[in-house]
Design a protein around this nucleic acid. Structure first.
Lengths: 114, 114
DNA sequence: CAAATATACATAATTTTTTTATGCATCAAA
DNA sequence: TTTGATGCATAAAAAAATTATGTATATTTG
């Protein structure tokens, strides 16, 4: 039983948006599996966090939805809107700044080229 | 007016602990100034988050407090306990995992040596 | 073939962690 | 003398998760 990686709160939307940017369109369950696969099980997106997040981003105009029936089961495919693409870029910059700042705090002697 | 860097929720305690590990002991206000200085104003630790966090870590046995009067003003110096040192190490590992996983998600083509 | 597991969505209650808004007090500088 | 910096603190609200459920279909396994 591998130890579960904590997900810093606020990073979930960034993860979702970035995956959608890469994959074009994805459905909820697919996103949870993709994250698990990429991180080799270290990160786990819970459905209780995922679905409300998707609904909110849709309400905010960042995502478009398209329903699909596959093997008798419903899938809701999400993709970025134009506004969502911009938001993704903005969130990526924030993530990079966060990582850079954290690394500076954590490793103050390290010289970084930016 | 520079744009304020968002602080992912959950990272505050890690920041505080890592600074205490480096500096030996610090007081609250000093921590806010140090973070501002290191990140060149990009990150701002609010006092409404800082003081409750310090109190909680003290209650959890991660920090020891020592009062001091300087220039007629009270300072509360915090330092890591033995248990706090362990917790700092553990939180640092979590941070490194988080960063590594986020970079893998964000830049899936990049090959990293770990 | 029955039961367990995987797929696929969803929501409600709770918890965690922060922001925002205050409040009090001392000291230095303008 | 009043403004800004220093230094602590708490309360209300907001944000964003976790945990616990619930429903339903498909597939695998004993």
């Amino acid at each position: 039983m591998k130890k579960q990686q904590q997900l810093y709160k606020g990073s979930l939307n960034t993860i979702i948006m970035k995956l959608l940017e890469q994959q074009g369109k994805m459905y909820g369950y697919e996103i949870t599996q993709k994250v698990k696969e990429i991180t080799q099980g270290e990160m786990n997106i819970t459905e209780g966090a995922l679905y409300p997040a998707l609904h909110k981003m849709e309400a905010d105009g960042f995502l478009d939805v398209e329903m699909d029936r596959v093997d008798g089961r419903i899938r809701k495919y999400y993709k970025l809107t134009e506004s969502g693409v911009k938001e993704t870029i903005s969130r990526m910059e924030e993530l990079e700044n966060f990582i850079r700042n954290m690394q500076t705090i954590v490793n103050p002697n390290l010289k970084l080229d930016y």
